[in-house]
């Protein structure tokens, strides 16, 4: 069996779904954030696989840009989560519920 780029895109779709389920199901902010990172990496896989399948360099270039953006997001995201954890000693999003009406 030849593994075509389509298989990689299918794998990416599965990873994206697992990440999406993780965001919806898990209540720990760090794990939710990890799930979002998983989704971002499935996007990278899609870009690279599609670029390879189409014979275009744009896919890999786009993946590089997404990686850089993800790194920036990690920096800010962890900083925000650490700030919350310091103030409340919890990373459970269900306990972050003082806002609402």
């Amino acid at each position: 069996m030849i593994v075509t780029p389509g298989w990689y895109m299918a794998l990416a779709a599965v990873l994206f779904s697992i990440g999406g389920a993780g965001v919806l199901v898990r209540r720990n902010a760090l794990v939710m954030f990890m799930s979002i990172e998983l989704m971002l990496n499935s996007v990278n896989l899609t870009f690279v696989a599609a670029g390879t399948g189409l014979g275009l360099i744009e896919g890999q270039v786009a993946a590089l840009f997404v990686i850089v953006v993800a790194a920036a997001e990690v920096t800010i995201g962890l900083a925000i989560l650490v700030a919350v954890f310091r103030g409340r000693a919890t990373a459970n999003v269900d306990e972050l519920s003082s806002l609402g009406g």
Partner: peptide
């Protein structure tokens, strides 16, 4: 900080 976490998690999603 609660606002920031909610904005961050849903915004990055």
């Amino acid at each position: 900080d609660e606002a920031a976490v909610k904005y961050f998690l849903l915004g990055s999603l």
